[in-house]
Computed example of a mutant assay.
Amino acid sequence: MARIAYVNGRYGPISAARVSVEDRGFQFADGVYEVLKLIRGRLVDADRHLARLRRSLGELRIEPPCSDAALQRVVKETITRNGLGNALIYIQVSRGTAPRNHPFPAAAKPTLVVTLRRLNLPGATELEKGTKIITLLDERWGRCDIKSTGLLPNVLAKQAAQEAGCREAWLYDAAASDDPVITEGSSTNAWIVDENGVLRTHPTGSAILGGVTRSVVLELAVAAGVKVEQRAFTLGELRRAREAFLTSATSLVLPVTTIDGHPVANGMPGETTRRLMADYAAHCGI
């Protein structure tokens, strides 16, 4: 069946969906987005995603286009019209349409777009053997905690990873020391089990996006009795790690077994990673 999109109060074929050329999301990347997943007809962690959307809108001083309850109705209706049981739901809100000028327009109405596509999760081989990543200099802006549509540095990093035959690029901040700190991936959060057996990931703040999957995995790790610290790790510590994995809404918990062409430990997913993979899959109902 044809894919159906929601745009500013109207449902219709995605091929016919339109926003103005003067929409500030197009002109300035003046907008935010959120991504939810639907598994077997159930939205996973929708409340956390919508809370993050509200936060991003507030940080950019964009008025919400509607209440959370109304947005959930739009999302559910878009799901129904697309007829998918497993789907990726993309929500984008821009400041709206106005003649191109940098200052905020006085009376623009926010633009709301909701689209769906089929959810493609990591395959069995990648889950069993792990994935490959590269590391790159983090060239993003200073407010990575806002889920902004301004993603060009992320796009370039992801393209570099693809051209290197890897799934992802983990980014490092070279300003602090001779041993750069890993922030996060181009579209994922980064984790290691360090030399002392401690599970670590970068603390929340302006340097990373506080991933919804990340927040769930932190809770699952604590519940499983894993020693966990929200503490940044360096490139050197990454290379000496016992285990590594990445998290995101679409990648779930995915082992990282090769970094910059070198194996992580013995080159296979470790015990902590496997435990959290299973626990998160159960959380999602997979």
Results as ranks from 00 to 15, higher is better:
269 P>R: 11
222 V>D: 01
179 D>R: 12
262 H>K: 12
256 V>F: 13
267 G>I: 10
282 A>Q: 14
220 L>T: 14
260 D>P: 03
205 G>D: 12
183 T>N: 04
167 R>W: 04
205 G>M: 03
210 G>I: 00
273 T>H: 02
182 I>C: 01
279 D>P: 02
242 R>S: 02
213 T>G: 09
212 V>G: 07
275 R>M: 12
208 I>K: 11
196 N>T: 13
239 R>M: 11
168 E>Y: 06
212 V>I: 10
263 P>R: 05
243 E>Q: 06
261 G>P: 06
253 V>W: 12
252 L>W: 12
226 V>P: 13
251 S>Q: 11
183 T>G: 04
244 A>D: 09
190 A>V: 06
256 V>P: 09
227 K>M: 13
172 Y>R: 10
282 A>R: 15
212 V>N: 03
189 N>M: 02
185 G>M: 12
261 G>S: 03
230 Q>F: 08
181 V>S: 08
262 H>I: 06
241 A>D: 04
172 Y>P: 15
198 V>Y: 15
165 G>I: 12
257 T>M: 12
280 Y>K: 00
248 S>Q: 06
253 V>K: 05
261 G>H: 02
212 V>Q: 02
157 A>C: 09
160 A>T: 15
278 A>D: 13
169 A>D: 10
269 P>E: 12
171 L>R: 11
174 A>S: 13
212 V>T: 11
272 T>V: 15
267 G>L: 03
219 E>C: 06
219 E>T: 03
272 T>H: 04
269 P>K: 13
196 N>S: 15
193 V>C: 03
274 R>K: 15
207 A>R: 13
166 C>T: 03
269 P>S: 11
272 T>Y: 04
178 D>N: 13
204 T>N: 07
189 N>Y: 06
252 L>E: 10
170 W>A: 02
183 T>E: 01
252 L>C: 08
279 D>A: 10
213 T>Q: 07
163 E>A: 05
197 G>W: 12
248 S>P: 05
185 G>C: 14
278 A>C: 03
274 R>Y: 11
159 Q>N: 11
209 L>T: 03
170 W>C: 08
164 A>R: 07
196 N>R: 15
269 P>D: 11
221 A>F: 00
222 V>M: 04
258 T>W: 15
278 A>Y: 03
284 C>I: 08
